[in-house]
Simulated assay, not measured.
Amino acid sequence: MLYSQESSGTREAEPGTLATAVALFAAIGAAANLVGLLILAFGFFGDPGHYDNSLAVSTALGTLLLVFALGYGAVLTLRGDEDGRFTVLVAAGVWTAVGIAGLLAALFGYESEYGIHWAEQGGVGVDIATSTAGLVGTVTAMVHGEWLPNLTGLALPVAISVLAALSARRSR
């Protein structure tokens, strides 16, 4: 069982090990997205002409949504609520889907013809570090088109998705 049971069969508020891991990784994901949002905000307001406005706004809104969804899902999961794991699963699944799209675009050499203005490439090491900053990092890796930063940006959302899927499957 995912949650510990008393001998009378009632559910306690204490989550099991897997549910605690889901909540922990979801909280880490929320923190990474918050860091990415701050990086985007300081970069955008510092030099608004450097960033594509529509992509920056949609990325910021998506990141803000992920911060709340992952954070709220982590709290619900720790409280023993089944909805928390599904909230985390959907949020991490969307984040993973964006990362997979970026990885596929990088692997197939797709380049946008729209001339998107975004953060400058700082080399592979800097791009790998940036790619771990939530959805903002995932979008940055996607715009830069390098496969390794796109792959490293997928590590956290995939881990969260797998843990949430395993815990949802186990609770049945």
Rank of each mutant, 00 (worst) to 15 (best):
A69N: 10
G49T: 05
F42Y: 14
T59D: 04
T132Y: 00
D47K: 07
L76D: 15
A91W: 00
R85T: 13
D81M: 13
D127L: 02
E82D: 15
S4E: 02
L38T: 11
A129S: 05
V139G: 02
A129I: 02
L163D: 07
A119L: 13
L163Q: 07
E14A: 07
Y72L: 15
Q5N: 01
L166Y: 14
A56K: 10
R170H: 12
T77I: 09
Q5L: 09
A30Y: 00
D52W: 14
T87Y: 04
G102H: 03
L89D: 07
L135D: 00
A92E: 12
R79N: 12
P48F: 11
Y110M: 10
G9Y: 11
G71N: 06
G102T: 01
G99C: 07
G109P: 10
L55R: 13
A23C: 09
R11N: 02
E6K: 13
L24C: 03
V139M: 12
I100S: 00
L2V: 08
G145W: 14
L24M: 06
M142E: 03
V124T: 05
F45H: 06
V35L: 14
S54N: 15
A32F: 15
E6R: 15
A21W: 09
L151Y: 09
G49I: 06
A69R: 05
A41N: 05
A119W: 03
E12I: 11
W95F: 13
L66H: 11
G93W: 04
A129C: 01
L24D: 01
T20M: 12
L2G: 01
E120I: 00
A21Y: 03
A165K: 01
T17A: 15
